[in-house]
Nucleic acid binder design. Structure first.
Lengths: 214, 214
DNA sequence: CTGATATGATTGTTCGACAATCATATACCA
DNA sequence: TGGTATATGATTGTCGAACAATCATATCAG
């Protein structure tokens, strides 16, 4: 009855959270032996986890040298935003207002507003990502959803590099709410235009913050 | 000096060809022990290969039951064509005519025409896929290219189910040539419209052939 | 101080083992 | 006889150990 996720998937999810959550520094090397011991799993199992996360772009594998936490580059951020625009905007443009995904969008907006009141910026970031994942779910495409999930994970990794999460997320809560309001009013066209502008501005802010790092 | 691809990658590529090439029947079960013996690799290594191909959608993994060659469904074909349209059309629309990808497109067209003369339909299929992969490469997005490679592999798997490859590929050789001609003439807009129509028709043909199978 | 060599650590791959789970055949009971 | 429960066998999931190949670092020679 319990569709228990295999140990590999479980550990993968755990490691993924550590990487996107910033517990592991980009560029950091992950020793097979030590990590396996820390996680209390065998090297073989850990290797399968590495394969998964490498495929998702969160880890980088150098032959005979080991795996490292991926280091986001400016090029990767540009690429990620291009992909986001390509996928999110059409998904929203042709959305049916009562699609299940709209409910997810609303839930994410509400959650973000609540978290803003208590100043949980990391939580706001998660809610924001969930909002956009919900937009993609409007497309009803399993492949696009899976692909976008990876893109989001990579973006979180990049965000982890930057400081001042308020700058990155705070201004967009109300904007998300407006986009949702337009969609629920049946005006998907305007909503998608707003989303396009949103992504453009967000990209600029992220790139600027990234440039300040050197 | 030789950037030797790891044994895992090598076997993965080999198995991938067998799956997309039709040597393995969709739905067929792949026994870890036997396949490992046949390929003369260890079970552990084969498992890593399985993870890779499962992630690519070519294999399906059922916990505690084993891995099977994926069985394309009508829903998956619909999804694949939706994704293709979403990615290929904009990539071509905003293409720069002297982009390196245009050269790849031309090479694919030439190869397809040559193969038509000797009746190598399987080869024509490969050339056709290469043509479309080249279109995506016009976008200069590593992530889109990687994603599209998976989509193509899944589509090949679906094609393997169908017979009469001439029906599937022959009519499109000249159409590809026309699209390329428009692009090289600097008229990417028209080219992308033609591509959109192409994909619509191709999708219909594939779905009809698929429906004839039951 | 520079370059070649030796040493140590880590990865790549294999092997063998065992518990957990699944599929099938057998035995039992109404 | 037919259906259910149990026992059997095979396969997967995970582990631990082992060893060659490769890489990184320290040592030494000039």
């Amino acid at each position: 009855m319990s569709s228990e996720p295999s140990l590999t998937e479980e550990i993968a999810s755990q490691l993924r959270d550590q990487v996107t959550g910033g517990a592991l520094t980009p560029g950091q090397r992950l020793s097979e032996a030590r990590l396996a011991a820390d996680l209390d799993i065998s090297r073989n199992t850990l290797r399968e986890v590495f394969r998964l996360l490498t495929r998702e772009g969160l880890l980088r594998h150098e032959p005979n040298r080991g795996v490292f936490v991926a280091v986001p580059s400016m090029a990767s951020i540009l690429d990620i935003y291009r992909v986001r625009r390509l996928i999110e905007v059409p998904a929203l443009a042709q959305a049916w207002p009562r699609h299940e995904g709209a409910g997810r969008m609303r839930a994410a907006v509400v959650r973000a507003k609540n978290l803003r009141d208590i100043g949980d910026w990391r939580g706001i970031g998660s809610a924001n990502m969930e909002f956009h994942a919900a937009i993609v779910s409007l497309s009803d495409s399993p492949r696009l959803n899976a692909f976008f999930a990876q893109i989001i994970a990579e973006l979180r990794l990049a965000f982890g590099l930057l400081d001042s999460p308020e700058m990155l997320h705070a201004p967009y809560i109300d904007r998300n709410a407006q986009i949702l309001e337009r969609l629920e009013a049946g005006d998907a066209a305007t909503a998608s235009v707003m989303l396009d502008e949103y992504l453009g501005q967000s990209e600029r802010v992220v790139l600027q913050a990234f440039a300040r790092l050197g």
